[in-house]
Simulated scan of single mutants.
Amino acid sequence: MKITSLILVFVSSFLLAQKPEEELIKSTINQLFNGMKTSDSVLIKKSFSKNAVLQTITKTGEVKNENINDFAVSISNAEKQSLDERITFSNILIDGNLASAWTSYEFYYKGQFSHCGVNSFQLVKSNNEWKIQYIIDTRRKDNCKK
């Protein structure tokens, strides 16, 4: 009976410890999309690590790279509230200072549906902060839940 109780306590504490980390990871990712929605380049850049990578996969399977600073500047030039990427967290995996998050999304421009896809994030924890190290996404107009 005591061994079973100890195992339950250990497993419960491990799961509870993971939960706050998941929330911090979600917060970092949500910060990026809040920065996009408010056209705030500072908030966008704050979400990324120094040497982060941003990529997208085209319909033909080509992988395109995008510079983080250029991305932040282009978003900051958009009309506030015109860019709205609505994400749903599917899975977050954590091992020490490395995390992976998978989110499906629907993207709206000025309130009109534009496209959907999936984001795959790799995050690193440095100085007790989660930062996005890598994003790759898909983009499509079909098979979207609207």
Results as ranks from 00 to 15, higher is better:
residue 1 M to Y: 10
residue 1 M to Q: 09
residue 2 K to I: 14
residue 2 K to G: 08
residue 5 S to K: 13
residue 7 I to C: 03
residue 7 I to K: 05
residue 12 S to T: 03
residue 14 F to S: 15
residue 15 L to S: 01
residue 16 L to D: 02
residue 17 A to I: 04
residue 19 K to T: 10
residue 19 K to N: 13
residue 23 E to R: 13
residue 24 L to I: 00
residue 25 I to M: 05
residue 31 Q to E: 08
residue 32 L to D: 11
residue 32 L to G: 08
residue 33 F to Y: 15
residue 33 F to C: 09
residue 36 M to V: 12
residue 37 K to A: 07
residue 38 T to E: 06
residue 38 T to F: 03
residue 41 S to Y: 04
residue 43 L to F: 04
residue 43 L to P: 00
residue 44 I to V: 13
residue 45 K to S: 15
residue 45 K to E: 15
residue 48 F to C: 04
residue 48 F to I: 00
residue 50 K to M: 01
residue 50 K to G: 06
residue 53 V to R: 12
residue 55 Q to H: 02
residue 56 T to F: 11
residue 58 T to D: 00
residue 62 E to N: 11
residue 65 N to I: 09
residue 72 A to S: 11
residue 75 I to F: 00
residue 77 N to R: 03
residue 78 A to D: 00
residue 79 E to M: 05
residue 81 Q to P: 00
residue 82 S to W: 00
residue 83 L to F: 01
residue 83 L to A: 05
residue 86 R to M: 03
residue 87 I to G: 02
residue 88 T to N: 10
residue 88 T to H: 11
residue 88 T to P: 09
residue 89 F to Y: 14
residue 89 F to A: 09
residue 90 S to Y: 08
residue 95 D to P: 00
residue 96 G to W: 09
residue 96 G to A: 06
residue 97 N to M: 03
residue 98 L to Q: 09
residue 99 A to Y: 15
residue 100 S to P: 01
residue 102 W to K: 14
residue 102 W to Q: 11
residue 102 W to C: 00
residue 103 T to N: 07
residue 106 E to R: 11
residue 106 E to V: 06
residue 109 Y to F: 06
residue 111 G to N: 07
residue 114 S to R: 09
residue 115 H to E: 06
residue 116 C to N: 09
residue 118 V to Y: 06
residue 119 N to V: 13
residue 120 S to A: 12
residue 123 L to N: 10
residue 124 V to H: 13
residue 125 K to S: 15
residue 125 K to G: 05
residue 132 I to Y: 13
residue 132 I to D: 15
residue 132 I to L: 09
residue 134 Y to I: 03
residue 135 I to P: 04
residue 136 I to P: 06
residue 141 K to M: 11
residue 142 D to Y: 05
residue 143 N to H: 06
residue 143 N to Q: 14
residue 145 K to Q: 10
residue 146 K to I: 13
